[in-house]
Nucleic acid binder design. Structure first.
Lengths: 151, 151
DNA sequence: GTCAAATAGTTTGACGCTCAAAGCATAAAT
DNA sequence: ATTTATGCTTTGAGCGTCAAACTATTTGAC
């Protein structure tokens, strides 16, 4: 049992590091060399569809609004993100992707999905089912833990 | 199949974010408020036992030697890490944890293991086995992918 | 043995990421 | 009308990162 814990733990840590590293390198090799992995996640959180406010996106990313403002300043300058003032409440800023931002979003999303797809392809139907259940368990536990932490 | 890919992908992303966030918050709440999550990973990479050289640790972390030197400067100042010149080759610096560093290492390691343990406890023996196989698959795929990237 | 080249690590300059705190504009409450 | 609350931006400080220049030491060629 303890051995199992160690193994799972080590795989998780290693997978973490690998994914981050591969994402970063892949970005740097692509036509989007001016985007860091953090900026990529910001673009991902802004998303393709609805417009999200600055506060919403900051919360989703788990960073302060001030931090996000700085990052969005850079992403606007580099033409990945645009700001739209709300007409209803003029304090509110809605964030949205530019065409270039949307292109990058799709490329990155595909990369992510391909990564998972290749792995699942090597597993049987039943196995991939259990992998997902395991991840679901881990996820549920983490969300619960997170909820217990003070803000 | 595509639905499965999406689900696994979303769980992975969410698990990533949660773990990082929980680690960071837990650190900030502990007696080790002066340590960032990155510094924690550096301490982890230096490890409890053998002495590792600066180059080795930098490689393990996937950062340049210069970056590590700067970080180690801070960790030495904060009394988590010590430098030991090699007697055999006086160019070489071996990194090791101080007592305080070792204490933090153990606390963090326990946190990590507890996290996984609680999850596995909720699964049956067979399920946790398959979770591990799934992670192994994912890990193998990532290592292969990583090997194909240029340095 | 001497000198050049290679190796291990450090320093520096520039820029991104992060937060907390102060500030600005607008909306809501009274 | 004035105060308070809300949403966002700016700023200052510290860490994280790299590339490039630098220092100290060892190895290799002769």
């Amino acid at each position: 049992m303890d051995q199992r814990v160690n193994e799972v733990n080590e795989y998780l840590v290693s997978i973490f590091n690998d994914v981050l590293m591969i994402e970063e390198r892949t970005l740097q090799m692509s036509q989007f060399k001016d985007v860091s992995i953090k900026e990529m996640h910001t673009i991902d959180a802004i998303g393709m569809y609805q417009e999200h406010t600055t506060s919403e996106v900051a919360k989703k990313l788990g960073i302060t609004v001030g931090t996000l403002t700085v990052s969005v300043n850079n992403l606007v300058r580099k033409d990945y993100v645009k700001r739209v003032r709300s007409e209803i409440d003029r304090r509110v800023v809605k964030l949205a992707l530019t065409n270039r931002g949307r292109l990058l979003y799709r490329v990155h999303d595909k990369f992510h999905r391909d990564m998972v797809k290749e792995t699942i392809n090597e597993m049987g139907e039943k196995e991939s089912e259990v992998l997902m259940l395991g991840l679901k368990n881990l996820h549920r536990f983490l969300e619960r833990t997170k909820g217990q932490l003070p803000d």
